[in-house]
């Protein structure tokens, strides 16, 4: 195993350790969205997904 893989893995582990308390805080304290909020978010992400598929077909 080369040191680049080990370095990248340690970097990602550090990110997970750093993110974990922030993730827990966000999950506990974020306001809850209504069904309408989530539906509009899913619709936007679907449009982004379709656009990415269009880009993939272009290359």
């Amino acid at each position: 195993m080369d040191w680049l893989k080990i370095g990248s893995a340690l970097f990602l582990i550090a990110m997970l350790v750093f993110l974990f308390p922030r993730m827990r805080h966000a999950v506990k304290h974020a306001p809850k969205g209504s069904n309408q909020d989530w539906l509009s978010f899913v619709a936007i992400i679907a449009v982004v997904g379709l656009f990415v598929m269009l880009l993939i077909m272009m290359v």
Partner: peptide, 16 residues
């Protein structure tokens, strides 16, 4: 879009 905070942080954690 503040309701996305928890979802995005969990998603980022899972992806990493």
């Amino acid at each position: 879009f503040s309701f996305l905070a928890g979802f995005l942080m969990v998603g980022l954690f899972v992806v990493i």
